[in-house]
Amino acid sequence: MISTKGRYALRFMIDLAEQSTESPVPLDEAAGRQGISKKYLEIVVKILVKGKLVKGTSGKGGGYRLTRSPKEYTVGEILELTEGTLASVACLVNEAELCPRKAVCKTLPMWIKFDSVVHDFFFHITLSDLVEGKV
């Protein structure tokens, strides 16, 4: 299940993409438009800045902006940055310990297929698709 953090990150990124301006978008304005607490959004934005998905400018006229075009972001990368892995079971997480039941696990093929569907779904939707209502 996608947490509030992931959902708010997507809403914030959409808000930035919709502002079609070169000027940074003040956090309090985006928070107000999206109905998100500024304090909570600060936590989310810190993750997005650290992941280099947005860039912040401080001082008068400061705010945030995307680091690249909305069509260059996928929902999958935004969710993985804010949520961590999208893997459905622990044995499919990157760098997970090798499961001792892997060779005999009857459910592993199902989880692999499910994770593939989830990955393909989220990594084929761009921020631009969301802004333009193409989903």
Rank of each mutant, 00 (worst) to 15 (best):
I112A: 13
E95S: 09
T107D: 13
V25I: 01
I43H: 12
A9Y: 03
Q19I: 01
C99K: 02
L92R: 07
G56I: 02
G62Y: 07
N94L: 14
S58P: 08
R68S: 13
F12G: 04
G76Y: 08
K60S: 15
R7H: 08
V75A: 06
E29F: 08
R65E: 08
S37V: 05
E77A: 03
Y64H: 07
D129Y: 02
G59I: 07
V25Y: 02
Y40T: 06
L81C: 03
V135S: 13
V45D: 13
H124K: 15
E97P: 08
A87Y: 10
F123Y: 10
K71F: 04
T67C: 12
D129N: 14
M1N: 09
F122G: 01
F121H: 12
I47F: 10
I47E: 14
D15E: 15
P24I: 01
G59R: 13
F122L: 14
E29D: 07
T85R: 12
Q34H: 05
L108G: 04
P70E: 05
L10I: 15
L92A: 01
G62N: 03
F122V: 06
F114G: 10
N94D: 11
Y73M: 06
T126M: 03
F123Q: 04
N94K: 14
L66S: 06
H124Y: 03
I47R: 13
E77I: 02
T21P: 01
F12H: 11
L27T: 08
S69C: 03
D120T: 08
V89M: 04
A87K: 10
P109N: 09
K60Q: 15
L10A: 12
A103E: 15
V45T: 10
T67Y: 10
C99F: 02
E80H: 01
Y40W: 06
R68G: 13
S3Q: 12
D15K: 02
T4Q: 14
K50T: 06
S23V: 07
Y40G: 00
K60M: 11
P26K: 07
K50S: 06
L79Y: 11
S116K: 15
L127D: 00
E80Q: 08
E80N: 05
T85P: 06
D15H: 04
P70V: 05
S37I: 05
M1L: 07
K55G: 00
V49E: 14
P24Y: 00
S58V: 09
C99Y: 02
V131Y: 09
V89G: 03
F123M: 05
L127N: 01
A87Q: 06
V89Y: 00
N94Q: 11
G6K: 11
Q34T: 10
H124G: 15
L66T: 06
R65M: 11
T21H: 07
Y8K: 15
M1C: 06
T67W: 10
L86W: 02
E72A: 14
F114K: 12
E95I: 03
E132F: 00
F12C: 12
G59Q: 11
L53F: 11
D129C: 04
S128A: 14
V75P: 02
Y8I: 09
H124V: 06
D129L: 04
L66I: 07
K46S: 15
E77M: 10
S58F: 13
E72I: 07
V44K: 04
S58L: 11
N94V: 12
S3V: 03
P109T: 08
K134A: 08
W111N: 11
V104S: 14
K102H: 10
V131M: 14
S116N: 15
K113V: 12
A17Q: 00
